[in-house]
Nucleic acid binder design. Structure first.
Length: 208
DNA sequence: CGATTTTGACCAGCGC
DNA sequence: GCGCTGGTCAAAATCG
């Protein structure tokens, strides 16, 4: 597995062959969800849908500028978001939510996330370059919690109710499939997501 | 014509 | 210090 996965905890469910039974899949689906009921599971789209405002999304993702530590969304507080419903999308969804605590586990990649966070925070009013420049002056950055979802789908571009604009694509190490970078285009929504296919199972899309 | 995608280049952080 | 890698930018191309 790529090193990146070390950072994320994939509560990875087995995608059973027929989880895309159309409609009926909710049974298995729901069952699986219950496993995460206390740990914060939700599909990306559902998660987004669960918020009435885009800001909420941002907040939930721990992107609020004021947050000094990265809270895990939903944590054990039990604010799960609509997990009982089937996804608004036809994709067979599912799996996994992952979070990483703020810098406790340190791994080598933290900087990247921080960088990302920085741009998110600054991106609104100032240009990215400024953010970058600023970053230099800053001593330490904090990590942004990330959540990974594994979705079984034929297409990369999942419909989760939000509009995403692709702003980059990169070939990833250890995987024949490229990783795509998307940014939410809805105003006030500064969430970004990375989408890549599992090299082990091309039918699975990993959304981070 | 505006929004989105594509794609190469650039930058910063990390490991060696 | 250098090379590698991930993430982002931005211009051009494409689409609806």
């Amino acid at each position: 597995m790529s090193e990146e996965f070390r950072d994320l905890y994939y509560y990875h469910q087995r995608f059973h062959d027929d989880d895309r039974n159309g409609g009926q899949n909710s049974s298995t689906y729901t069952q699986n969800l219950q496993m995460f009921n206390h740990s914060s599971y939700m599909g990306f789209g559902e998660f987004l849908h669960g918020s009435t405002e885009h800001n909420t999304v941002t907040r939930a993702f721990g992107l609020t500028p004021s947050t000094s530590e990265a809270p895990v969304m939903a944590g054990g507080d039990g604010d799960l978001v609509g997990v009982s419903e089937t996804p608004a999308t036809p994709y067979s969804s599912i799996s996994s939510s992952s979070t990483e605590a703020a810098g406790d586990d340190d791994s080598n990649k933290s900087k990247k996330e921080n960088q990302q966070k920085e741009s998110v925070e600054d991106g609104e009013n100032s240009s990215k370059k400024e953010a970058k420049a600023k970053k230099k002056g800053e001593k330490k950055k904090q990590r942004v919690p990330r959540f990974a979802f594994m979705t079984k789908s034929e297409v990369d571009h999942l419909e989760d109710g939000y509009r995403w604009r692709k702003y980059g694509q990169k070939a990833v190490k250890n995987s024949p499939y490229p990783r795509s970078y998307y940014r939410c285009t809805t105003q006030k929504c500064s969430v970004k997501k990375h989408v890549e296919r599992s090299h082990q199972d091309p039918s699975i899309v990993i959304t981070t």
